[in-house]
Amino acid sequence: MTTIRRFCCNDLLRFTSVNLDHLTETFNIPWKPNHGLHYGKEYRRQQLAKKLMNLLEDFSDKIDKGYFVDLFVRASNTPAIKMYEKLGYIIYRRVLRYYSGEEDGLDMRKALSRDVEKKSIIPLKRPVTPDELEYD
């Protein structure tokens, strides 16, 4: 059964099967104004990821009026990187040791309609460290 809704704290407790997947980053509390994209193995190959990403882009474009959508993915997670590329994302920069101080993360971006000249997605030439990332 599928229902798309906001994530809440108690979901962390029923999220085990997704968290156990080795590619999922086990976050502690779903805070920070960002979103994660995780779904259980049982529900793969149904284009659910595509639907969720479209939703996110739509909100960011029309409601938040952002310039771009960006996401972080483990550098070793080739399947996800390929999927995001298919959805129009490009690798904007590499963040060194982003995941638990061990693995690099890739910052992938897709420009939204407001960024007419697509300036937000010109790839950086050098990798950055996590403390160079700008949070609000």
Partner: peptide
């Protein structure tokens, strides 16, 4: 097993 998985797993 880390973070919240410690409680659930």
């Amino acid at each position: 097993v880390k973070n919240i998985l410690m409680e659930t797993g």
